[in-house]
């Protein structure tokens, strides 16, 4: 257990040391590349802002993600159970996913002008539901027919088959997709926070740091975002080990 914590911490320390060394060796000024030691004053000076903006970013990302889970699972179920729906929806979804979300952000910002929370959640959702929908649909459509037959031959209903077999069997794929979706949702939230005027959240803090040429603060925001991303990722990992721990082979 302590080893599990110790190894990543060492890696993190090595990363910071290399970063510091790189800046120091090149003698870069902080407006070119801030070094880790430049970040400490930024965190100290603005810690209250980091907490409130970080919270803004976090809750909107989580809400967007929850929305992505609901819609993604529903879409995945529809496509997993019906071949026709799969044929119909796949090209649409792929096309939708291929559109860079940076181009959608200004459209959404204009469409629902002023609704900053809503817009941010919407972009976080739009960017992250695709992997969930795809993985759930693949998980369901690749269910071996024998699994179905075992229960169907006993007279089980479609719903029972879904609850007892299809759903648990798809969980590992679902959590795999959720890990990807978590980081994507952060990108979505920040895109909107940076672009929309009078935005809130870490993205807005980044944008105002840029306006004020406070370069160490910009880098500090990046680190704060990375931190939030790591926290949320490990929340998903914890949920996975609770609900789909059986899929993990014990090391032997």
């Amino acid at each position: 257990m302590s080893r599990k914590l110790f190894v990543p911490l060492i890696a993190f320390a090595v990363f910071l040391a290399l970063w510091e060394l790189l800046v120091w060796a090149n003698d870069w000024p902080n407006y070119k590349m801030a070094s880790p030691t430049d970040l400490v004053p930024a965190f100290v000076k603005y810690w209250e802002l980091f907490l409130s903006m970080g919270w803004q970013t976090l809750w909107r990302t989580v809400v967007g993600l929850l929305l992505a889970v609901v819609v993604g699972v529903l879409l995945g179920m529809v496509m997993g159970f019906s071949r026709t729906m799969r044929d119909a929806l796949y090209p649409l979804l792929v096309g939708f996913n291929a559109v860079p979300k940076a181009t959608v952000v200004p459209i959404v910002a204009l469409l629902f002008v002023g609704a900053h929370d809503f817009n941010t959640v919407l972009i976080a959702f739009m960017i992250s539901f695709f992997p969930i929908a795809v993985s759930v649909s693949i998980g369901l459509s690749t269910l071996e027919p024998e699994y179905r037959d075992i229960l169907r031959s006993l007279g089980a209903s479609q719903f029972t088959i879904f609850r007892k077999i299809a759903l648990p069997k798809t969980l590992p794929e679902f959590f795999g997709a959720l890990k990807v979706a978590v980081t994507l949702a952060f990108i979505g939230t920040n895109l909107m926070e940076i672009v929309s005027p009078h935005g809130r959240g870490l993205g807005a803090l980044f944008d105002s740091a840029k306006t004020n040429s406070d370069y160490p603060l910009m880098f500090a925001v990046l680190i704060a975002l990375a931190f939030l991303g790591i926290v949320l990722y490990y929340v998903v990992v914890a949920l996975e080990s609770i609900f789909a721990g059986w899929a993990e082979r014990s090391p032997s």
């Binding site: 071996e144 024998e146 699994y147 037959d149 031959s153 006993l154 007892k164 069997k169 969980l171």
Partner: peptide, 13 residues
């Protein structure tokens, strides 16, 4: 009716 196949289709979880 009881059925068994070539693939034992046990539920891994």
């Amino acid at each position: 009716v009881g059925m068994a196949f070539q693939n034992p289709v046990l539920l891994e979880w």
